[in-house]
Structures are given as C-alpha cells and as structure tokens.
C-alpha cells in the first residue's frame, strides 16, 4: 500500500507539493496527471526517499520513507521514463544484478520466468542492453520489479516515447502486476494510457491534488475536458 499523509515539500520559498494526502491499496493503479512542474516527479522522489518531506509523511506498506528509507525502498520498484541498464551487460545479467541487491537468492529459472513474464523476447535475454529499444528496457525494468517481489511500483512517465504496440504491452504488464497484489503509483502526461491502465486518476496542479477521478466513470474525452478545465483555470489564474 502507498499512502501520503499531508505530504508537503518546499524548495526555499517555493512550495512544490502542498498537503498531499491519498492512499493506493494493493491491486490498484493510481495515476497522477499534471502539467510540467505540477509536483509529479517530486512526489515520486519523496516516495523513493530521494528527498525529505518538509511536512507530512510518505508511507510504503506502513513504513515511513523518511524514517526507514532502506526498508521502504526494499519493498519498492522504480521504473523511470528511461530504464537505466548497464549497456555492456545482457538483459539477463542486468536482471540478475539488480535482483541480487535485494539480498534474497533468486534462481536463474525464476529470472528467466521474470523476463518471459515481462514479455521480453527470448532471443534478447542474452544480448547486451546497449542494443535494446526503450520498450525492451521497460520490460527488463518490470522483470526487475517481479524478481524483487516489490509490493509497490513507482512509475515516472514509463510509456513516454513507446510505440503504440509497446505501450499496449506495457499496460498489460501493469495489469499483471496489479494481479500480483502490487500497488502502483504512476505519473504521466498521457491521459489516454492513464485512463486505460489506472483505476483512479489524480490531477495535480501547482503542487495540490485538485481532483480524483475514477477511470471507469469517465470516457477519454470527458477526462480530457476535466483535465483541461483545471489547466485553463490555472492559466487563467496565472494571467
């Protein structure tokens, strides 16, 4: 479970996040939508323990990230916009290395199963990662999360730049992760993919959570209207 309790982050006089509170239970995907600078990546960084909160707390499976960062991160998998892999290692070797950091022994067959479950083609397992496309890297990122048996998945623009087929495959992978009791927090600009994969969608504006929408209750065009209304409101206020 992912939980934000009155989470606030200030950088000097600028408030990046203000009094953010939400909960993402297991088997649910919560998507944050918002313009650049809305505080989406700051939220991810707070849950990764990369930044300390100014007030409030970020909890992963009940563990306060600021107080127990290593324990919280041990339960968390993180997939950025561009999954970073060691280019000179193969996909399998990358997976083996990152899986080994969890401190638990993962058998080679489990690793292979993880790559298969993530949808990476078998002939790519032992190719060096320098030859991988972005979609293949994202799949290895998912395989790492599977091998780690993460209970929480944090995604920062994971489908940006993926072709439609790869993005569709990735959405399917996220649904499979949900089926494994994983709670997912994804930040994205992509309203349509967010609606496709998310259960609830939170709209962030200038560091505040202005609305939460249930994905099943709105059509794609309605979601766009809601989102743009908030953005225009922001633009109007700014003007």
């Amino acid at each position: 479970m992912i939980e934000a309790r009155n989470l606030t982050k200030r950088f000097g006089n600028t408030t990046a996040l203000n009094d953010l509170s939400f909960t993402v239970p297991a088997r649910e995907t919560f998507c944050f939508l918002g313009a650049n600078g809305a505080g989406k990546t700051t939220t991810i960084n707070l849950f990764l323990g990369f930044l300390p909160p100014s007030a409030g707390s970020a909890l992963v499976c009940g563990k306060d990230v600021a107080e127990e960062p290593e324990a919280a991160r041990a339960l968390t998998a993180y997939i950025p916009e561009q999954v970073a892999l060691y280019p000179e290692l193969t996909g399998f070797e990358n997976l083996k290395f990152f899986a080994s950091l969890g401190g638990t022994d993962v058998s080679e067959s489990d690793l292979i199963s993880g790559l298969e479950a993530a949808g990476l083609q078998q002939d790519a397992f032992h190719q060096r990662a320098v030859t991988y496309s972005k979609g293949m890297r994202q799949k290895v990122g998912i395989a790492i999360a599977l091998a780690k048996r993460a209970q929480v998945l944090l995604l920062d623009e994971p489908m940006s730049g993926l072709d439609p087929k790869a993005a569709n495959d990735f959405c399917e992978l996220l649904r499979n992760m949900n089926a494994r009791d994983v709670a997912i927090l994804m930040v994205t600009h992509d309203l349509f993919r967010a609606r496709e994969v998310g259960h609830r969608l939170g709209i962030l504006k200038a560091g505040e959570l202005v609305e939460i929408v249930h994905a099943s209750s709105v059509s794609a065009s309605e979601l766009e209207e809601i989102y743009l209304a908030h953005m225009h409101d922001a633009a109007g206020k700014a003007a």
Binding site: R73, T76, Q82
Partner: peptide, 14 residues
C-alpha cells in the same frame, strides 16, 4: 551517464 546510479540508489541500496 547511463542513469544506472539513480536506478541503483532507487533499489534501496545506500
């Protein structure tokens, strides 16, 4: 440069 340092720190490694 490859982004793996952030990835590494994101796994819980200090």
């Amino acid at each position: 440069e490859d982004g793996t340092l952030r990835q590494l720190l994101g796994t819980g490694v200090t």
